[in-house]
Design a protein around this nucleic acid. Structure first.
Lengths: 205, 205
DNA sequence: TTGTTATGGTAAAGTTAATTAACACTTTAC
DNA sequence: GTAAAGTGTTAATTAACTTTACCATAACAA
């Protein structure tokens, strides 16, 4: 075990391994090898062994990895052996889709509140939630101790909302707005921007 | 200009630069520097200069970059100086959100057809489109010469649909299903999986 | 039991890729 | 004419990946 400093690039691969392992587990598969897992996710077996061995010896020589055991370990490493509360800001189409998505729970997350600044949307039901006004955002989030947020507001509003979230104590933001957010170094941001992903592929067409 | 072999990681940063430049341009800003752009997107000035200079000399010493000019060049490099037709497969919540999203057009993409295999959804209107049955997918896509697709079907169906898309001649897939797709090497895949992004951040919380 | 095969963990070496730093040169402002 | 700003480029440095090799263990077949 080498707890010193794990490169972020390795952390980024762990969810991919987890995703595949979870699917194998659902299919009733109990055991896999770095070889097999690698073929599924498109990563070399050596890479996978090296990544996993950063955190301990979770495999068995000769037999491979016991999937439920490895999943437990990965969940614990990524701290998703619990369920994280997440605030959703922006009740547009994307907000609706995320609020209604059933796939978060099994992977360690649940949306617990939804905000929007549009008076027409406030009070409306989105998924299982009543949309709250943005004016109550900071206080509500702080009181609930929520540390993660998903941001699905228009680009022009995104930075302001991000600033609010940071003030409210949020430490991780999943940003759907097509704009790079500026946040303090102790706050993590991940971007989801379908147009950027598409543009990345057209280069090769 | 060094057209030999540009690393994929550089290609992946170009859309981020474009996104920021497009926003600056909308605000009426005509000129920027690697320094300023770097602060906006959180990437070092040296890195930006190096990335851009892979493709030519688009800046002026002493003055920086003319934003409309640089944008044109980047659009041309990423081949989004045209509008790409995109097929959307999966008319669930996420499919609806994407079909109605207005932000693709300005960045080089337009959805032109929507498919689902649910008889209840076929014929329904999603955004400006009538949902078509999956059985017509391969033929319709091939006839229209569509090369890109967005995949918002459940994980269990994703690989089968991807196989269909590949058969139909699609060369780039934006996959929203939480599963790693296996496709031939000449087909590009990008994954969008919010739970993975969230898991990547919880490690640091 | 014994040999064989499959497999993970580790380490070393080599290779490639990515990032950062440094600097010469150009342009603009004054 | 001089200082400041800023690029493009090269060099230096660091990081990531790949390859290879080897050992220890486990499962299984003879």
């Amino acid at each position: 075990m080498n707890a010193e400093k794990i490169p972020d690039i390795i952390i980024g691969r762990l969810p991919i391994y987890m995703r595949a392992l979870q699917r194998m587990s659902e299919k009733g598969i109990q055991t896999t090898s770095s070889q097999e897992l690698g073929e599924r996710v498109g990563i070399s077996a050596a890479q996978i062994r090296k990544d996993i061995s950063q955190f301990g010896e979770f495999g068995k020589q000769g037999t491979g990895y016991h999937i439920p055991f490895l999943l437990d370990k990965l969940r614990s490493i990524l701290k998703v052996d619990r369920v994280w509360d997440v605030a959703l800001v922006g009740a547009g189409d994307m907000g609706h889709a995320l609020a209604r998505y059933q796939g978060f729970r099994d992977r360690g997350f649940q949306i617990v509140m939804v905000f929007d600044n549009d008076a027409q949307k406030v009070g409306e039901k989105v998924g299982d939630f009543i949309v709250q006004d943005m004016s109550s955002l900071a206080e509500t989030i702080r009181k609930a101790g929520v540390k993660m947020a998903m941001l699905t507001v228009p680009a022009v509003a995104a930075q302001d909302v991000a600033d609010e979230l940071v003030k409210a104590g949020v430490k991780a933001i999943l940003n759907y707005a097509p704009i790079s957010l500026n946040v303090p170094p102790d706050v993590k941001v991940q971007h989801i921007d379908p147009a950027s992903h598409l543009q990345r592929m057209t280069y090769y067409l």
